[in-house]
């Protein structure tokens, strides 16, 4: 796969000397949505967090093997520099307790953007991409905490985009949302894959099937099977994958 943007080689993670992920070899293709699926505790989120070194913020996490971003080992890069390129959105929406506008200018200001016009442009563009602009354009100074759950999650995605990442990691971004908001986010992700590479951890097999181009099935801390979503769902190679897709583990 020549257009791989992220590659994991013999990758593994241990928490407090207990191995939770081992022997992972995989590639994430650029400009596509890759879904990571698998039963609870199989190491999906751990693998995701390893891709932008967010694991390091957790105590007692040790990683083995290597993760390459555009061919460069991410452990040779500054963590801040890496996370700017590989953004992340969490399971529960995490709007900062400040206005919508300040949430959106939080990262650009850090990266040195100071002009009011330039900031306003960044705010508008990214809110438009996530379809939030029309809903909040008159309330930019309203506290982000007053938005609905779905709006908050879209704000978090828009906020992650203000750092201009190449890859966007999403850790079950819809698990705390209702059906309608989930649908909006899924449509948004399909739109975003034109510009960004997306990796999404999901429990929802239907969601993986609806939006993902590639699918990784994890089991017991190992990468069990990987294929295009269509192929993986239509023709799983391993018994465990088939069982999982049929709901045996669920």
């Amino acid at each position: 796969m020549s257009d791989a943007i992220i590659k994991l080689h013999d990758f593994g993670v241990a928490y407090d000397q207990k191995t939770v992920l081992s022997g992972v070899n995989t590639s994430i293709r650029s400009g596509r949505i890759t879904a990571i699926i698998g039963p609870s505790g199989c190491g999906k989120s751990t693998m995701l967090k390893a891709m932008n070194r967010m694991l390091e913020t957790q105590k007692d996490a040790a990683v083995f093997g290597s993760v390459l971003l555009n061919g460069v080992d991410i452990h040779t890069m500054e963590a801040e520099q890496l996370r700017r390129k590989v953004g992340m959105v969490f399971q529960t929406p995490t709007p900062f307790p400040m206005s919508v506008y300040k949430n959106m200018t939080y990262a650009p200001q850090y990266y040195g953007v100071t002009g009011k016009q330039e900031l306003s442009r960044i705010v508008r563009e990214n809110l438009e991409v996530t379809g939030l602009w029309e809903e909040v354009k008159d309330d930019l100074n309203k506290s982000a905490l007053k938005l609905s759950g779905g709006q908050q999650q879209r704000l978090c995605i828009a906020r992650a985009l203000t750092a201009q990442p190449e890859v966007l990691l999403l850790d079950e971004p819809c698990s705390a949302l209702d059906v309608k908001s989930t649908q909006v986010i899924e449509e948004l992700l399909l739109k975003l894959k034109e510009t960004y590479t997306i990796v999404i951890v999901t429990h929802n097999l239907f969601q993986a099937r609806r939006i993902a181009d590639d699918c990784i099935f994890m089991l017991n801390g190992e990468l069990w099977e990987q294929n295009t979503t269509e192929e993986l769902f239509a023709n799983p190679q391993k018994k465990e994958t088939r069982d999982y897709l049929q709901g045996v583990y669920a």
Binding site: K85, M88, F90, F96
Partner: peptide
């Protein structure tokens, strides 16, 4: 964590 995840120091 959300702040760190955007590359903030």
């Amino acid at each position: 964590r959300a702040s760190y995840a955007m590359g903030m120091s």
